[in-house]
Design a protein around this nucleic acid. Structure first.
Length: 482
RNA sequence: GCCCCGUUAGUGUAGUGGCCCAACACGUCUCCCUUUCAAGGAGAAGAUCACCGGUUCGAAUCCGGUACGGGGUACCA
């Protein structure tokens, strides 16, 4: 699963590529065999695709530096490890995981910070060979040089200084022949000519290691860009508890990719003025690494929902219809229209309805409730809801009966004309619009909230409207008897 | 423990020494529009710029310390 924080990292990386005319590269880092999961790989690609973060090179599209999956590039890492051993920057180590565990427990017991003690530096070739022959696991460790402090430049953080004496020799090639991230990403970044490393802040402390490897191999450094964390409402790391954590969950909740794109770009970056609502192209144009913030941001769902509404309102009816139809056609259990409505739904009919609800939608999923009564044969309002808050069942019955007559004979059966007739009716009955219109709305839509009444009535059609009003009158009568 | 990073209203951001007793947006509240719900319009409340000290004629902005939050300290990425 691609976390929303990961999506934002990818987004920034993509923006840099698109803005500078560079290539956005998708690389699968599957060097931990214990954790590898093909499904999550697919879902990452689906998330990126949904957001429109198209990649120029990657496992599926290929590219000049294929393959783009690390497990298919093992020789490259092993070669690099060998070179580092030959140049004296790395060495083989036969310390077992159990021995390391013992070491750490002992260190903790002695009140010292746990860590590797670099004991492998002093082993002879013969010892290692003997261990290997005995079937003991052998890893390759990078030797931390004794050069005091290391400084590096990060495009977001500025200059960061690190005391190398705090680091221990670390594993670059595991005993199963797979590289650790530290080695693999450096070899690949070099091979694939990566110019900008955009990543989460948890990598800051290991950046000195990456720089040391680059230097040992005699390679130039890429630009480092450590982006800030995204937090949940309670300021802890964003997770399921906060509503949704993956991009695809937002999609399933009816959020537009352009809204997530826009919203995420603004978590940790701003164009420098008051502009907030932007298209993808505007963001590409205005984005700048210099304006990425260092401090973590809290993900505010309310603001995302607002922004989603803005993007929905900016969209054409055609475009909206194309997005809403699949939502309505999902099974009822997944938030679609009631299963009794046959699929596919009538696109022309949908298109004619959308102007009535367009500016009322904050998410695509809201379209189901907002439109279902247009598609159903009959609706089932609550009897108690029919009169509305400020009226009573008797008045409601009277209103509905009078309305029924108007609806039967109104000619033409069009919104403006119906409204005029109903206004006249209200006056005749001595009622304010509310007590007259509300029962009709509830009877016809089954809900107290609906689009403008007369447009709604016409869209539903005379016959169904008459049936629904008659039905409501019957409901009120039987409620009175019982 | 040690190391790294951060800290402007509830939230996202603007602000880079005087224009700032701090601006915009979301959210909240009030009112208007109105047949409901939205949208839209007009307002309001909400920040001792984490704290303490220093530099300066002058600090949200520069420096130091403290507190708090997050991250790292793996044969995970």
């Amino acid at each position: 699963m691609l976390h929303i924080g990961g999506v934002r990292t990818a987004l920034y990386s993509w923006l840099i590529a698109r803005q500078t005319g560079g290539q956005f590269v998708l690389r699968i880092e599957d060097t931990d065999r214990g954790r590898y999961d093909a499904a999550s790989e697919a879902s990452i690609m689906e998330s990126l695709r949904w957001l429109g973060l198209d990649w120029d090179e990657g496992p599926d599209v290929g590219g000049p530096y294929a393959p783009y999956t690390q497990s298919e590039r093992l020789e490259l890492y092993q070669d690099a490890a060998r070179k580092l051993i030959e140049s004296g920057h790395a060495y083989e180590d036969d310390t077992t995981p159990e021995e390391l565990e013992e070491l750490r427990t002992a260190q903790k017991a002695a009140g010292k910070p746990p860590g590797y003690d670099n004991r492998g530096r002093y082993k002879t070739k013969e010892e290692i060979e003997a261990s290997r022959a005995a079937g003991k696991p052998v890893v390759v460790r990078f030797k931390i040089p004794d050069i005091g402090k290391l400084k590096f430049e990060d495009m977001v953080l500025g200059e960061v200084e690190f005391d190398l004496s705090l680091l221990q020799d670390f594993v670059i090639l595991k005993s199963d022949g797979y590289p650790t991230y530290h080695l693999a990403h450096i070899v690949d970044d070099r091979e694939m000519q990566i110019s900008h490393v955009v990543r989460a802040p948890e990598w800051i402390p290991s950046t000195p290691r990456h720089i040391l490897i680059h230097q040992a191999l005699g390679w130039d450094l890429p630009n480092y860009i450590h982006v800030p964390l995204i937090l949940g409402k309670d300021k802890s790391k964003l997770s399921k508890r906060h509503g949704a954590a993956s991009a695809l969950e937002y999609r399933d909740q009816g959020v537009l990719p352009e809204a997530i794109f826009n919203f995420l770009a603004l978590l940790g970056w701003s164009p420098g003025d008051d502009t907030e609502v932007m298209t993808k192209d505007e963001i590409i144009e205005r984005f700048s690494v210099e304006r990425i913030l260092k401090s973590p941001a809290v993900f505010d769902n309310d603001k995302l929902t607002w922004m989603n509404g803005v993007h929905i309102r900016q969209m054409s009816t055609d475009d909206l219809a194309g997005r809403v139809a699949p939502v309505l056609e999902r099974p009822e259990s997944e938030g679609g229209l009631p299963d009794s409505v046959s699929r596919p739904i009538d696109r022309d009919f949908l298109h004619s309805l959308l102007p009535l609800v367009h500016e009322r939608l904050k998410t695509l999923n809201e379209a189901t409730d907002a439109l279902s009564f247009f598609f159903l044969d009959e609706v089932h309002p609550e009897v108690e809801a029919l009169p509305g808050r400020k009226s009573d069942p008797e008045t409601a019955t009277k209103s509905l009966e009078a309305s029924l007559e108007v609806l039967k004979f109104a000619e033409p059966f069009e919104p403006e004309h119906l409204e005029a007739e109903f206004r006249a009716l209200a006056e005749k009955l001595g009622l304010k619009p509310g007590p007259l219109f509300t029962p009709v709305r509830v009877a016809v839509t089954g809900s107290t909230m609906a689009p403008p009444l007369f447009d709604t009535i016409v869209a539903i059609g005379k016959e169904r409207v008459l049936n629904r009003v008659e039905n409501a009158i019957r409901m009120l009568e039987s409620a009175r008897v019982s």
